[in-house]
Structure formats: C-alpha cells, structure tokens
Design a protein around this nucleic acid. Structure first.
Lengths: 166, 166
DNA sequence: TATTGTTATACTCTATAACTATA
DNA sequence: TATAGTTATAGAGTATAACAATA
C-alpha cells in the first residue's frame, strides 16, 4: 500500500486563495465563510427590497409558523436578548406585519400573530429566498445542499442552556 | 407504495422548541443557529482567556499559514474591509504576535509574519479549539462533523467576486 | 492615475441596567 | 419575590470617506 505523504491539505480561502492552514477544520471559521454568501443573497433579495433586516425576517417567519408565540420564547429560539426582540416587534408592528395581544390568563405575556399582509409576505419571501440560495450556491449539488441544511440543524441542537439568550 | 402525508417537517428551534416552519431550509438561518454554538465555544476558550477576538484570531492563523501575506490579501480572504484589518494587525503587533515588514520590490505593501510567540500560540489554540468544538458538538458523529466542514467549505467557494471585501 | 495602507468617523447589531406591570 | 416586557444606554463589529505613500 502506498501511503500518502503528510502534506497539509491544499484547502484555500475563497477569492484570495490563501492557504486555510489550521483554520480549515474549525467549524466557526467555515460557518463565517459560508455566511458571506448567504448574507449576500439575503441582502440582495430581502434587505434591499423590503425594509427587513435578518433578525426581523426570521422573527416574522417564526411567528407565522407559531401563532401566539411570546417574545420571550422568540428570544430563546433566536439566541438573542429580549430588548432586541422588543425593537424588532415594534418595527414589524409599525409595518403592519404582525400584531401584539395581551394574554388572557397571564396579562404579562404578549401573544404575537402575523397579519394577513405579514403572512403573505413571509410566504413569498421564504420561497424566493430558498430559490435564491439554491441558485447562488452553485458549488453544491442539490443533495449536498440538503445534507448541509440537515447537518447544520443537528449541530445547532448542541446549543447549551441559556437563560434568555446567548 | 404508501405515500407520506404532506405534513410539515417537525423541525424545531434549539432550546425554545418552536416550529422552524419556513425557516428550516434557509441556509442563512441554519448557519446563524449553528453559529450560536461555535461562538460559545470560541468565547469560552479563546476570547475569555487571551485577548483575541474572532477576526484577530483568524487573521493570525492565516498569517501563520501564509508567511509574508499582505493586509489586502487578508481582507479579501476574510471578506472584510481593509481598515478593520489594519486595526487587527495593530493589536496583534502590540501583543507581540506578528510583525510588519515593507515589501522590497513594492514599498506600498506590508508583508506579515508571525513571531515565535505568535506561532506557538496559534498552534496551541487551533488544536484546543478543534478539540473543544468536537466536544461541544456532541449531536454530530465524527463523520458528520467532518462532512459538515467540507460542505461548508464548498459552499463558501460560491462567494461572488468582491473588490476588496464583502 | 491606480493601489496599499492608515486614520477618522458613522452606522448596525446586540448586550446590560433600570424600570413597569403582573403574577 | 419572580417573571414578561420595555426603555435607555453602552459596547462590539464593521462600514465609508478622506488621506498619505508608492507605483
């Protein structure tokens, strides 16, 4: 059997084509690099055309899929602190995309729901965004793309307990 | 053949266990969710013990693997703007971890190299960080972890051309 | 005139602290 | 006393603009 020489893998950084050297196996680094692409796609499709930032868009979509969810639950799901959620909800409400409603049994909580306009926007943007990502990530086959999504989801489940945010 | 009913997949957000609904297939969302875990690992291991932020650590490691690299090349590789690189290099130089050296043939450029101390630190931290990520991402098998790294690397290569940064 | 790098500055994002209302 | 949410504020992080030196 011939044994391969112990040369470092020739993985290179995007664009500048530097050696990734020790960074290659570090997941946090590869996440950031891949994030450059998805941020480009999001900004070009959602941010520039509508007045929705990443956190706002994600929050709106989660509200759409979880009618009546509370701000605290969303903060935990997104890994951010409650004050940020309050600001995002303010903006989304001002845009007429979701509603706040005090809880019946517990008047401290606020149940969030999308408006008809918010629901329609979410449905459209989610569809467009998925398509735009597939088009942009031409380096991945459809099967690889799907596997990447599932592996990331599985990785995210390793998140440690956090009281109300990161 | 029995056909599965078209129910939505039961994927749930980490911790809060909300329905991910439309966000599930969006790569940018899954990247952000997985990033919560890797940020926790990085902060606990590198940031809290040494005075290195994520960009500084990545830059130092790339310099280690590409001796003589210039600031402009690093900005392109990392997807950030040159002024940020200048600030990071300032700090790393002040910490005695790398050196600047004017180019012989072109005095505009500065060639960066790690000091002995910088090189030793990179070697140690990279090793520790890889180990810490593997330990933290207990939801992934070693094979899945390795595949995730490779798929992310492949995805990152889809990055569009950018003049000097994002 | 174009390019590298720096300085100064502004904007975005997210966190902490302090507060109100409710339980 | 503990919890949900808000307001006000501060700190990271990263961008743009203007500049200096060199090609």
């Amino acid at each position: 059997m011939t044994k391969k020489p112990p040369v470092a893998a020739p993985e290179r950084t995007p664009y500048a084509r530097l050696s990734e050297a020790g960074m290659h196996p570090i997941l946090g680094y590869q996440l950031a690099q891949a994030g450059v692409v998805t941020t480009q796609v999001f900004d070009g499709l959602v941010r520039s055309r509508h007045e929705l930032r990443r956190g706002e868009f994600t929050l709106l979509t989660l509200v759409h899929g979880n009618p009546g969810v509370t701000a605290r639950q969303l903060a935990r799901a997104l890994g951010v602190k409650p004050p940020n959620v309050a600001l995002w909800v303010d903006r989304l409400q001002a845009l007429g995309l979701l509603t706040r409603e005090r809880g019946d049994s517990d008047a401290r909580v606020q149940h969030l729901r999308t408006t008809a306009r918010g629901a329609a926007l979410v449905d459209r943007l989610v569809k467009d965004l998925v398509a735009a990502e597939r088009a942009a990530l031409s380096t991945l086959s459809p099967a690889e793309h799907a596997m990447l999504v599932e592996l990331l989801h599985k990785a995210a489940l390793a998140r440690g307990r956090m009281d109300s945010g990161p």
